[in-house]
Amino acid sequence: MSDVAESVKKIVVEHLGVEEAKVTDTASFIDDLGADSLDTVELVMAFEEEFGIEIPDDAAEKIQTVKDAIDFISAA
């Protein structure tokens, strides 16, 4: 697993309070990991913080799965 993937999964586990095993690449924050719309906003903020990047609102709306997050951050 890449460093980015590892960090993303760690943040998801911490913020959503879910088991690590459930945080697969294809897991959807809302459908699979019990997040609501406010949780996803907070999650994006945590990614910005951890990776020192800015994720614009229109891009943030498209980040719905763990893989979406890893791909966006890796390309940023």
Binding site: L38, V41, E42, M45, E48, E49, E54
Partner: peptide
């Protein structure tokens, strides 16, 4: 403002 939590108000 971008660092204000969405949970602040509720």
């Amino acid at each position: 403002p971008r660092r204000i939590s969405p949970f602040f108000i509720p």
